[in-house]
Amino acid sequence: MLLSLSDIGKGYETGGARVEVLGGVDLALAPGETVALTGESGSGKSTLLHLCAGLDRADRGRIEVAGQDLTHASERRLAALRRETVGLVFQQFNLIPSLDVAANLAFQARLAGRHDPDRAAKLADRLGLSGLLSRYPEQLSGGQQQRVAIGRALAIRPALLLADEPTGNLDEATGDAVMELMLELVAEAGAGLLMVTHSPRLAARLGRRVHLAGGRLAA
C-alpha cells in the first residue's frame, strides 16, 4: 500500500476537557488510487490529512507512507518525506508572496534536488501559467494561485498527493477546471490522491469515497 493507517487515534485538550477527534481510523490507499475523504465540519478530516503528512502525530496507531513508518520518525525524517514523497495542496494556496510564479513552482522541487527546467516548463504550460511566470501571487486570480500550488506539489513527482479542500476558495466553474486538471496530472504521474472535500459532486469524481463520522471511517 502507498498509504496505510491502522487504528489511528487523536485527541486534543480544550477548555480543560479531552476531546477525541479520531477514534480508531483504518485506511489503505494503493498507488494510483484516488480517494475522497468527506465528513461534517469538525469531524477531523483535516486532522487526519495532517497526520498523513507528518504535520502532526497520532496519539495511537500506525501510519505508513510509501513504506516509511511515520509513528516514531524524527522531525527531520518527516520533513524529508514532505520534500520528496508527499505533495500538499491546501485551500489557502500557501504560496510564497516574495517569489514569482516560476520560483513558486520550482520551490519544492529545488528543496528535493529534483528541479528539472524542461519539466517545469511543460508543467507550467499544462497549468496555463506560461505567460504568468514573472508575476507574483498577489497579481494572480484565486484559480491561478491554486494552479501554481498544484504545480508546486506535483513538480517533485510525489508518490502521494494530499489535498485539503483544494477548490474551496474558488467559484464552481473555476473549481471544476482546477479539479479536472489536478486529476489529469495526478493520473499522468501515477500518484495516489487523498482529497478532503465537502462536495458530494467533487467526491464522485474520485475513484473511491470514505466518510468520517464519530471518529471512524465508513465507505
Results as ranks from 00 to 15, higher is better:
residue 1 M to E: 14
residue 5 L to P: 01
residue 14 T to P: 00
residue 15 G to N: 03
residue 20 E to R: 11
residue 22 L to M: 13
residue 23 G to M: 10
residue 26 D to Y: 02
residue 27 L to W: 01
residue 29 L to F: 09
residue 30 A to I: 07
residue 33 E to N: 03
residue 33 E to L: 09
residue 35 V to M: 14
residue 35 V to D: 07
residue 36 A to I: 05
residue 36 A to K: 05
residue 38 T to V: 15
residue 40 E to G: 15
residue 43 S to G: 14
residue 43 S to R: 00
residue 44 G to L: 13
residue 45 K to T: 06
residue 47 T to N: 08
residue 48 L to M: 08
residue 51 L to P: 03
residue 55 L to H: 10
residue 56 D to Y: 05
residue 62 R to H: 12
residue 64 E to P: 01
residue 67 G to L: 06
residue 67 G to K: 12
residue 70 L to G: 02
residue 72 H to C: 11
residue 75 E to D: 15
residue 77 R to P: 03
residue 77 R to V: 15
residue 82 R to E: 02
residue 83 R to D: 10
residue 84 E to T: 14
residue 85 T to P: 00
residue 87 G to D: 04
residue 91 Q to R: 11
residue 93 F to N: 08
residue 96 I to Q: 11
residue 97 P to W: 12
residue 101 V to C: 06
residue 103 A to M: 09
residue 103 A to L: 08
residue 106 A to N: 02
residue 108 Q to F: 02
residue 116 D to G: 06
residue 118 D to Y: 01
residue 119 R to W: 11
residue 119 R to Q: 13
residue 121 A to D: 13
residue 123 L to H: 05
residue 132 L to K: 14
residue 135 R to F: 06
residue 136 Y to A: 12
residue 136 Y to M: 14
residue 143 G to D: 03
residue 143 G to F: 01
residue 145 Q to N: 12
residue 147 R to F: 09
residue 149 A to S: 10
residue 150 I to A: 04
residue 151 G to H: 05
residue 152 R to F: 11
residue 152 R to I: 12
residue 154 L to V: 02
residue 154 L to M: 11
residue 155 A to G: 04
residue 157 R to I: 05
residue 161 L to E: 00
residue 162 L to N: 07
residue 165 E to C: 07
residue 167 T to Y: 02
residue 167 T to W: 01
residue 167 T to M: 09
residue 179 M to H: 07
residue 180 E to A: 15
residue 184 E to V: 09
residue 190 G to D: 02
residue 194 L to K: 04
residue 194 L to R: 05
residue 194 L to H: 03
residue 199 S to L: 04
residue 202 L to W: 00
residue 209 R to M: 13
residue 210 V to E: 07
residue 211 H to N: 14
residue 216 R to D: 04
